[in-house]
């Protein structure tokens, strides 16, 4: 057997799995989104009709789709910057020569990342319980009135964002920490000799050197946060008053509660298109920013 044939034998199992259980379904999803596949079609395929872009058109006219998109964008727009700031802050602290017991702190800060979303979301539901929750008790000590964290439409999403930041910041922290450690120490040395303050060192050395890492982490975090689902499923069931219904939550309900698989596929593709557009825009803006910097310099 020559290496060329061997290569295809080695590739076959993985490619088969990815082809049959990922690529094929993705193509089928596109086709499905152009049909009215529902409970009747599930029972008998002859009930299936081609509706072209009908599902997309109907979705764009449904207030629930727009509100789900609005909640998702809210979660991404507030949650991603907060998560990245927490990650960067923690990484800067861990990277400081003044920090003690670094391995312990790194492990402790990273621990929430490996936990199961469902299990820790349950914990948060109790910690943010209106009557007996630790959060309201602590605020009460400061004289703040109890907040109905998960029952008030204004507070439910902020609570979920706080949860997501707590759960996820450790992941990017580790990536940032590696990025910070890769910055040559003599850059800071030179800046110190020039009398640059800590803030100026951060602004003119740390941030530019970390630029590519920040961009990559930002894009990955944005695409991850667009896929909000388990948190509202466990903490609020999409409520109160649908204030935490995300696009993916809508897809799940549309597809597996009401069995409108055609319409649910259209939701999935719209989400994909939006994610793609947003991340492409981020890349573009970052390139233009880098280009402008280059010209200024």
């Amino acid at each position: 057997m020559n290496p060329r044939h061997a290569a295809w034998l080695f590739l076959a199992p993985a490619l088969l799995v990815l082809g049959v259980f990922f690529l094929l379904p993705v193509i089928a999803a596109l086709a499905l989104s152009l049909t009215d596949y529902d409970l009747y079609a599930l029972a008998d395929v002859r009930n299936l009709r081609f509706v072209a872009l009908g599902n997309y058109w109907a979705l764009l006219q449904r207030p629930l789709f727009w509100s789900a998109l609005g909640h998702t964008v809210y979660f991404v727009a507030v949650g991603v910057p907060l998560s990245m700031a927490a990650s960067l802050g923690a990484a800067l602290l861990l990277n400081s020569p003044l920090a003690r017991c670094k391995p312990f702190f790194r492990t402790a800060l990273f621990a929430p990342v490996v936990t199961t979303v469902v299990a820790v979301a349950v914990i948060w539901r109790y910690l943010f319980n209106t009557k007996y929750g630790m959060a309201n008790y602590a605020l009460g000590l400061l004289g703040v009135h109890p907040v109905d964290w998960l029952g008030d439409p204004h507070w439910a999403m902020p609570t979920i964002i706080a949860f997501a930041v707590w759960k996820n910041f450790g992941y990017n922290m580790v990536i940032f920490l590696a990025g910070l450690q890769a910055i040559p120490a003599d850059l800071y040395e030179a800046a110190r000799i020039d009398g640059a303050s800590a803030w100026r060192q951060f602004r003119h050395i740390t941030l530019p050197m970390l630029g590519p890492t920040l961009l990559m982490v930002g894009i990955l975090t944005v695409s991850g946060y667009f896929q909000l689902f388990a948190e509202p499923y466990v903490m609020t069931e999409g409520g109160p008053l649908q204030s935490t219904t995300s696009v993916l939550y809508l897809m799940y309900e549309e597809g597996f509660k009401w069995w409108n698989l055609g319409s649910a596929s259209a939701v999935a593709f719209l989400l994909f298109a939006i994610m793609f557009a947003v991340t492409a825009l981020m890349l573009r803006l970052a390139r233009r920013g880098a280009h402008a910097d280059g010209e200024a310099a």
Binding site: L18, V20, F21, L24, P25, V26, S223, A264, S265
Partner: peptide, 20 residues
């Protein structure tokens, strides 16, 4: 091509995958 496929979120495939 495989790396390119990473931009597709897994949820897109889930509905037909269920039928399959």
């Amino acid at each position: 091509a495989l790396i390119g496929a990473l931009v597709i979120p897994a949820q897109v495939a889930m509905l037909p995958l269920f039928l399959l």
